[in-house]
Design a protein around this nucleic acid. Structure first.
Lengths: 146, 146
DNA sequence: TTTGAATAGTTGCATAACTAACTATATGCC
DNA sequence: GGCATATAGTTAGTTATGCAACTATTCAAA
């Protein structure tokens, strides 16, 4: 039995990612209390656009670890909310470039503050070296299954 | 700035739990390849029943970190698949006790093997002390937000 | 003993996920 | 040029999640 064998009783919470789910739920709740009517999933798409505006849907798939239909619908819903705009690429007509609107640019600082605050709350009492180690393990897990 | 402040570029993957999502997806794929037609979420409910049969829906909520409507519907679907059976409690008529069927008892060893194998694959190259530390961090995060 | 609060579970509505199958455009080889 | 293949994105169907509102049963205090 390899020394990294998981004990059965610990399987479930690892698989469901209860911790990250809890963070996402809390952040969602904080958004709602502040009157910000977007979902965490929509926010996570905006997050990548704040880093770099005008990404293609395909690039959003990669960066947000989602498949194409998921991004199609998230962008659909963000477009309905007038938070992004699809612009067909001139170089390649298959490609939609997704751009922020003025409304969504305004959302950035308020929601990023809230997200940082929520994460700090979540990580209260956890040392930064433990956080680093934890992130490294999660990345390794992700890479192992790629 | 507290020493456990998250850097912005790392927010997203933590919040979405990409690692645990990847494990769940892989296990789902393995089930499918083996001709086992249940979802990971359904499996996770069975998992708790294998540990202790005859739990109430409320107890399933707590153990699987889900809310009541989610458990109601998972049990609905498991019942359609004839993998569990609701039995009203004699002591308290509000309570449904959820019992495994012969079919789902048979699923246990095959799927647990698959789950352990998938986790070992996911954790390849990660030391057991790192796994312990990682689990401790995730538990702490969960508790911080409770 | 009755009334009000708490608990167990269900239902409806909106959003999101995965798979598979589809359209449209681009690329590359003959 | 023309056809096969790859790539970008959409659509359809099923399942799952979160929230809010609901019913039914139990419990506890006036």
């Amino acid at each position: 039995m390899p020394n990294n064998q998981f004990k059965r009783g610990e399987l479930y919470s690892f698989i469901t990612g209860m911790a990250s789910t809890a963070v996402a739920r809390r952040l969602q709740k904080n958004f709602k209390q502040a009157g910000i009517e977007i979902t965490i999933e929509q926010w996570s798409v905006l997050y990548h656009l704040w880093k770099q505006d005008g990404l293609s849907q395909q690039e959003l798939c990669k960066q947000s670890f989602r498949d194409k239909p998921s991004i199609t619908r998230l962008v659909d819903n963000l477009e309905k909310l007038k938070l992004v705009k699809r612009v067909p690429s001139k170089d390649d007509r298959r490609i939609n470039l997704v751009y922020l609107t003025e409304d969504s640019k305004k959302l950035q600082y308020e929601t990023m503050d809230m997200a940082n605050q929520t994460l700090n709350e979540a990580l209260d009492g956890v040392s930064s070296s433990d956080i680093e180690m934890c992130k490294a393990v999660l990345q390794k897990v992700y890479d192992n299954l790629k």
